[in-house]
Design a protein around this nucleic acid. Sequence first.
DNA 1: CCACAATGATCGATGCTATCAACCGCAAGA
DNA 2: TCTTGCGGTTGATAGCATCGATCATTGTGG
Lengths: 147, 147
Amino acid sequence: MIDAINRKIIAALQQNARISYAELGKRVHLSAPAVAERIRKLESAGIITGYRVKVDLDKLGYPILAMVQCKVYRTKEREFKALLLSYDEVVECINVTGEQAFLVKLAVESLSQLDAILEAFIDLSDTNTMMILSTPVDRALPETFFK
Amino acid sequence: MIDAINRKIIAALQQNARISYAELGKRVHLSAPAVAERIRKLESAGIITGYRVKVDLDKLGYPILAMVQCKVYRTKEREFKALLLSYDEVVECINVTGEQAFLVKLAVESLSQLDAILEAFIDLSDTNTMMILSTPVDRALPETFFK
DNA sequence: CCACAATGATCGATGCTATCAACCGCAAGA
DNA sequence: TCTTGCGGTTGATAGCATCGATCATTGTGG
């Protein structure tokens, strides 16, 4: 299923997910229907899970990105998860090993907005806030996949 | 530029970036060329920065995701950045405030592969490795943007 | 060894889609 | 008021997606 051609297809879609099947076909030396069928199978196998637009958060009015490490108090875990979901500014949240820890990425308009959110978190967890300065690498897949 | 219609367009592209202009037009009550023109402008303004396919890393042979917090030794910063870029398994890297710190997300095939990478990092930084158990939230944009 | 699915490709027809040009209406400014 | 520019519509056209028919290849059972 994951042969060299599908790797190339995924690589091309990684670079531009709105590319046409015809164009993809040219790149992998296959007809458009053949590519469409391969992609349909990748989707229904759950390998391709969607297509997303990438946007500039800064230009959309969210100049501040923060990563908050939350060590949730043992008894407050359920409550914490509910709180997380209630905040629209939570852009990403990953659950990691070690002391009920979550890494929460927040996109906010201002530091005061960040502060307000952290206030709410601090009742349920020990927080450690890091401001995100830059994102030197942002891939969806390891490069080895394409080799 | 960022009016209610463009918010809807971005929201729709967020859900499925391969949707047609005609379909987008139906949703925002505009003709296909009008939508195409709006998107063209969003792209050239750098607000829309691309379209990406989303994939299941597990199904592609990378069952292990780790987040490594690296406190880079003051004199080794340049060297560390070079090392990062040399590793294909680095899927994301964010530079955060506090003691030359980086958060590095790694996608690997096995724990031994992870170990090998950490070996290399440890010469240049204090590392704190967290295994990623789940990703309860993974949005590209705060929900407030759509309200 | 030969039939015979099953798979995965191509090709051709058809309806949709993107794209371009021409045109229109409205709002801001001279 | 005139005019200029912006953002929209419409219609034509070329290209694309999609479907069915067909064909080659491969692996399997008689």
